[in-house]
Design a protein around this nucleic acid. Sequence first.
DNA 1: CAGTGAGCGAGCTTCCGCTTGACTT
Length: 676
Amino acid sequence: MDLVIVESPTKARTLARFLGSGYEVEASYGHVRDLPERKMGIKIERESGRAGEYKFEPEFTSTKKQTERMEEIKKMGNKAEKIYLATDPDREGEAIAFHVSQMLGKHKFERVVFHEITENAIREAMGNPGVVNMRLVEAQQARRIVDRLVGYKLSPLLWRKVRRGLSAGRVQSVAVRLVVEREREIEAFKPEEYWVIRVELQSEQETNKQSFWVTLTEKGGEKYKAAISQEAEEATNYLRTAKYTVGSVEEKEFKRTPPAPFTTSTLQQTAANRLGWSAKRTMQIAQALYEQGHITYHRTDSTNLAMEALRSVANFLTKEFGPEYALKIPRMYKTKSKLSQEAHEAIRPTKVNGDSRFIIQDFGLSRDELRLYELIWKRFVACQMAEVSGVSMKVGVIAGEYGLEAKGETITFDGWLRLYQSTNTKEQNGEVDALGEEKVPELAEGERLDFLDLKSEQKFTLPPPRYTDASLIKALEEEGIGRPSTYAPTLTTIQDRQYVDKSDKKFQPTALGIAVNDFLVTNFPDIVDYEFTAKIEDDLDGIAEGNKHWQPVVSDFYGPFEKKLDEVGETAVRVQVQAEETGEACPKCSEGRQVIRIGRFGKFLACSLYPGCDWKANFVNKTGQICPKCGGDVVLKRTRSRKSFFGCSNYPNCDFASWTRPSYKAPEGEVKPETV
DNA sequence: CAGTGAGCGAGCTTCCGCTTGACTT
C-alpha cells in the first residue's frame, strides 16, 4: 500500500478514484507549518562586518490541529511502502510538500506534480516522481517572512500612532489605498455639462419608411460636443429646419469571441454583477458545489481546460446545438496573470452532459447553488462555442456644416450568444448602452432624409464609480496583489478593521481608513506602492529559478524598512482621526455638533466638543423595518464575534432579535417606511 | 444574539496563503 498526500479531502477523493486500490490518499488540509500567530517568530540578526546585512531565522510551528492531522498521517505512513507528495505544483504547494515530509520524519518521499486531475496526467505523474524543489520552498519562505515582517512590524506601529487593534499588510493596505484614492478622485471631480442632440429621420423613399435616430457628432469637420445650453440651442434651431442627406454608409463584418472560462476572480466579479453577491457568498456557494463534485476547484487563477472536458463539450455541442455551434479545434485561453503557476484548471462543471433544465431535477441543488452552477456551466460551454458574427453599420448624415451619426448592429449568427447572453440587470434596465438595440435601415449614399423629431438632452459627466466587490477584486488582480484564496477574506478584513464601509454594495473609506492610509503613504510609500508586490514577486521568481538566495532578498527589503520603522516610531506624531459630520447639533450642549467616531466596538455618535462636552449615543443602522414586538425600529447590529443580526432599537426594554431580516408588518393606517 | 466606546497605569491587538469545519439562531 502506498500513501499519497494532497491538500484537500475533495482532491483526495478524486485522486483515489483514479488511482484505485493499492493507494491510500490523505489530505493535509492546507499548510501544516507556519510562523507562530502570537509573536513575530523570526530571529533577526545583524551580520557582523557588512553593514545593513541581516540574517533571518524563521520559527515554523504547527497548530494543535495540524499536529494531530499529521500524527494520523504518520501512522499510515509507517505502514506505507512509498509516500507520494502530490500537492499543487506551485510555491505554496511545494512548501506544503516539504513541511509534510519534515513532519513525517524519516521516510523516502516521491514528489509528483500534475497540472490537471485526469487519469492520464495522474498516471504520467506517478510514473515520473521527483524530489521536493527546495528553491521553490525557499521562495515561499521568503514570501511568508516578508509578509510577516510587513504585517507584524507595521501593525504595532499603528497601535502606537493611531489606535489599538489596527492592522496593515502588503495586500490589505493597498486595497484600502485603492478605495481612499478613488474617493478623493470623486471628491475632486467637477461635473461638466454637455448636451446630447439626437434627430429622428426617415428616408424619403416610400418603400423605406423605417425611422431611425442619429446623434450630432461633428460641426465644420471637427468633433462636436455642446458644452452649454446656448450652443445646443443654436444647433437645435438649425437642425429643426435643416436638409438631411446620407453622407456615408459603412458596413463592416465583425466576429466576437466568448469570454474565457471562470477563474476565482472573474467568477466573483460576474456573480457580483449578475447576482449581486459578495465575494464571500460566492465562495461559500462555490465551495458547496465543489464538494458535491459539480465543479472543478474554485480557487484558481488559471484558464486552462482539461482535454477530456474539451472533448466532451465538443460532443455535447454537436449533439445539442448542431455542428455549426461547435469548434473543430478547441479554443485555448491565455492566463492573464504572470504569477499564475498553472496549478489548476479554470472553474468549470465536471460534467457537461445534459443542459441546465435537467440539472435542476437531477442534482437537487439549492436555489443559490443552482444559480451559480448555471453561470459556471454556461460560461464554460459558451467558451467552446463558435464565434458570434454580424454586421455593424455606421451611417453618416450631413446637415449643412453639421455631421450626425447612427450606429447599428445586426447579428447574422448568434454562436455562443445563444447560451451566454448578457443577462446583466443593468443591461436589462437599459442603463448600459446595449449595442445592436437600434437598427439602422438600408440606406444609400446621397439619399435625402426627412426630419421627424429632435431631442436635446442636458447631461453631466460622471465621476469614476466607487469600488464594488467586483471592481475592487478586479483592480487587485490586475495589480497582481492577493491570490484567489485571499480576495474574499481581504475584503472582509478591511471592513472588519473599519477602514472601509460598504453601503449599497459600494466601498467608501471611513475617516479611520483615510487616516491610516495617509499615515502609511506618507511614511512607508514603498510598502503601500502598487508595485511593491510586483517587485517582491520578481525576487521570488529569482529564488525559485536558483538565481538568488532568499536571505539577501529578505535582507535587502528589511534593511531600509527597519530604518524607516525606527525613524517613524521616533518622530511621527500621533494621528488624529477626523470625525465624520452628521449635520446635527449636539442635544446636550447645543454648541457642538454630532459627529460619528469609531471606537472599539464600531461607530458611535459623540459631541464634537469632547472632552468639553461628553454627550454620546449609539450609532444605529436603521433597516426601515418595524419591530414586530414593540413597533420600534429594527436596527442592524453585531454580536461580540462581529456577526450581523437584527435587533430592536428599544433594547434593552425590548429584547427582539433575529438573524434574518424580519418581514415588515405594518399596523393599520401607518405609512410604510422605505426599505433599505 | 447586545449596551460599550475617544490620548494614561495592564494586557491585549497584527500579516498572507493554503485548507475546511461547526455553535446556529
